[in-house]
Amino acid sequence: MRVRYLKCGTDCPLGGPLFDGFSKSLFGLIPCAAQLVETNEGLVLIDTGYGSEDVRHPHPRLSRFFRTLLNIHFRAEETALHQIKAMGYSPSDVRHVVLTHLDFDHAGGLDDFPNARVHVMEAEREAAERKRRGFIAERRYRPAQWEQVRDWRTYAGSGECWFGLERVRQLDGLPPEILMVPLPGHTWGHAGIAIRSDDGWVLNAGDAYFYRRELDGDRRRCTPGLRLYQNLMEVDRELRFANQQRLRELKRERSGEVTIFCSHDEIELEAMQRRNGDTSTTRAMPPIGQGVATGLSGA
C-alpha cells in the first residue's frame, strides 16, 4: 500500500510561535493532516480536514467561535477533494473514510465523498449525535458535515492488543494493515489509526497530542497556545494524559518499529511527507524512525 500525507486545511491562530513553536510572524501555522491510502480495493482516506462546502459556506457550517479563535484559512486547493482529483482520481475512487474523531476540522470533507463508507468509534458518533450539549460540544460537532453519510460503520471498545495498546481492531471491508486504536480523552470516541506499509507501521495519533515535543521522554513540553487549546477541548484529562503516556512509551520502546505523528504539527507533517518521498518540503526535518512490520495480539 502507498500512503500519501495531505494538508487538508490550515489554522493560523494569533500568537505565532506560542502555538506552533517556530513561526516568525504574529500568526501560527497549524495544519489539518490527513492520509490517503492506495489499496487494491480502492482509496482509503484517513480524516478529511476541511471540505469544499466548508470553503464555500464556512457560515453556518462552522461556528464563529472556532473560526475566530483558530483564524481558519479556507483554501479550495487544500481540500482532500481537490488534491485527490489532482492525482487523477475521482471522488468515487474513495471507498472508505476512517475518522480519528468527528471534530469540525477532521470531518468537514465527508460530503465530498458521498459513496464512501465512514468508519468511526461508536462512542464518538454517540457523543456527536446524541450528547451534543454544552458550549464546546455544540461548536466542535457540526452535523451539517455528516448529515449526508448513509453508510456508517461504528466500533465498540472490544479488540486485541497492539504494541501494548488495548482494544485495537481491524475495520470492516478494509485490509488488515489498517487498524483503529482507541485513544479517548480529547473526545469520548477519539482513536488513532495505524497503517502498515512497506517500511513499517505508522500511527496517526490524531489529536491525542498536538505538539511534537509532547512525546519526548525526558523533557516533554508543549507550546502555551496548544496546551490551552487541548485543555479547552478535552473531555477527560486523566484519560488524555494516560494515553499520551502510552504513546510516549510506545515511541521510546518501539521507535524502530512504529512511527507516530499527530494531526496538527507542521514539522511532523513535513517529516512524514519527506519520508514518503515528497521533495517539495524545504523545512529542516527531525529524524524519523524506520519500521518493521508486525501485527495484532501482543506485538
Rank of each mutant, 00 (worst) to 15 (best):
E126G: 05
C161D: 15
D172A: 11
A137I: 04
R169S: 09
L165C: 04
A137R: 12
Y141K: 06
Q145D: 10
L183P: 15
L171A: 02
W152D: 12
G185R: 00
R140S: 12
R142M: 10
E126Y: 09
L165M: 06
R133W: 09
W188S: 09
G164T: 04
I136F: 06
Y155T: 14
E177W: 01
L165G: 06
E160L: 06
W152C: 08
W146Y: 13
R140L: 04
M180F: 01
A127Q: 09
S158C: 04
E147C: 15
P176E: 14
W146T: 13
E177P: 04
H186E: 07
L171R: 06
M180V: 11
Y141Q: 07
F163H: 15
L183T: 08
L183D: 03
R150S: 14
R169A: 07
E160Q: 07
E166P: 00
E160V: 10
G185K: 00
G159V: 02
G173T: 11
T187A: 05
M180L: 14
W162T: 05
R169K: 13
R133P: 00
Y141D: 07
L171S: 05
P182I: 01
P184K: 07
K131D: 09
G159M: 11
G185E: 00
G173H: 03
R133V: 15
G173D: 03
C161F: 05
V168A: 11
Q145A: 01
G157D: 02
G185H: 07
T154G: 00
E147K: 10
R169D: 10
G134I: 05
R133I: 15
W162G: 08
E138Y: 01
R140K: 05
V181C: 03
V181H: 11
R153I: 06
M180T: 05
I136K: 00
G185V: 00
C161W: 01
T154F: 04
Y141H: 06
R150F: 09
P143M: 11
E166T: 15
Q145R: 10
Q145K: 09
V149R: 07
G164F: 04
W152I: 10
E129W: 06
E129S: 11
P182Y: 05
P143R: 12
